[in-house]
Computed example of a mutant assay.
Amino acid sequence: MRVYLPCTLPALATAVKLGELGPAPLTGYAVTPALTEWYASGDTEELEYVALTEAARASLRMLAADRADGVQAPARRVVIAAEVPESAARAGADLEERARVRLAQAVPLTKVAAVHIDDVEATADVEAALAALPAADEGDDDARFTVDGAEAHELMWYATQEIPDLLRS
């Protein structure tokens, strides 16, 4: 099962040092039965894109949390695509996040299929989204529009052997 795990560049660097994404439990996003039922007209590729988009939203929140904790994190959303056994992912019952799954174990880097990350050109919009996130959570429509502006940027795809280059950029 392909699972999309929200991340940040500092968290990716830590995962590389440890050889795994963790610690467990991990929240990820995948093509779940609830997502398939909700998006009945979508094919597998469209459903995976929905899961990737949900993970990118979660990455933005992880980035905000890192910064609140004083971590120097570049304003780039990161999503790690990994292959895990279906039995390792437990789907939630949250109708708002139909793609959300919980992983009870850390994910070895050997299971990572690819890394998706914002292009450097998205940095200004991601910075703006980070600044607007608290107001968006309070229901401010203009702030929500700003947060959605980050989503207008497609995440770039990188092979696992390119991870060291991503960490140097």
Rank of each mutant, 00 (worst) to 15 (best):
M1D: 11
R2T: 06
V3P: 05
L5M: 05
L9K: 08
P10L: 12
L12F: 08
L12I: 11
A13E: 14
K17F: 02
L18I: 00
E20P: 02
L21R: 04
G22A: 07
G22Q: 09
A24Q: 11
A30K: 06
V31N: 03
P33K: 07
E37H: 11
W38Q: 14
W38E: 15
A40T: 06
A40K: 03
A40Q: 08
S41F: 08
S41V: 08
G42D: 15
G42Y: 15
E45W: 03
L47F: 04
E48A: 14
E48Y: 07
Y49Q: 15
L52K: 15
E54I: 00
E54G: 03
A55W: 00
A55G: 05
R61V: 04
M62D: 15
L63F: 06
L63D: 13
A64S: 14
G70Y: 07
G70L: 04
A73E: 13
A75K: 05
R77D: 13
I80L: 10
A81T: 07
A81H: 04
E83I: 01
P85M: 01
S87Q: 12
A89I: 01
A91L: 03
A91C: 07
A93P: 10
A93R: 12
L95D: 15
E97S: 09
E97M: 02
A99E: 11
R100I: 00
R100K: 14
R100G: 01
L103N: 13
L103T: 12
Q105N: 12
Q105I: 01
A106W: 09
A106D: 14
A106N: 10
P108W: 02
L109H: 06
T110I: 00
T110F: 00
K111W: 13
K111A: 14
V112M: 04
A113M: 02
V115G: 10
H116Q: 04
I117C: 15
D118H: 09
D119G: 08
V120D: 14
E121A: 14
A122E: 09
D125K: 03
D125R: 05
D125Y: 00
V126C: 03
E127G: 07
E127F: 02
A128C: 04
A132L: 02
A132D: 14
A132Y: 08
P134I: 06
A135K: 06
A135W: 01
D137P: 00
E138R: 11
G139C: 02
D140T: 06
D140G: 02
A143V: 05
D148Q: 11
G149N: 03
A150T: 05
A152K: 07
A152T: 06
H153E: 12
H153L: 04
L155G: 12
M156H: 11
W157V: 06
Y158I: 00
A159L: 03
T160P: 07
E162S: 13
E162Y: 03
I163F: 03
I163N: 01
L166P: 15
L167Q: 06
S169Q: 15
S169M: 08
S169L: 04
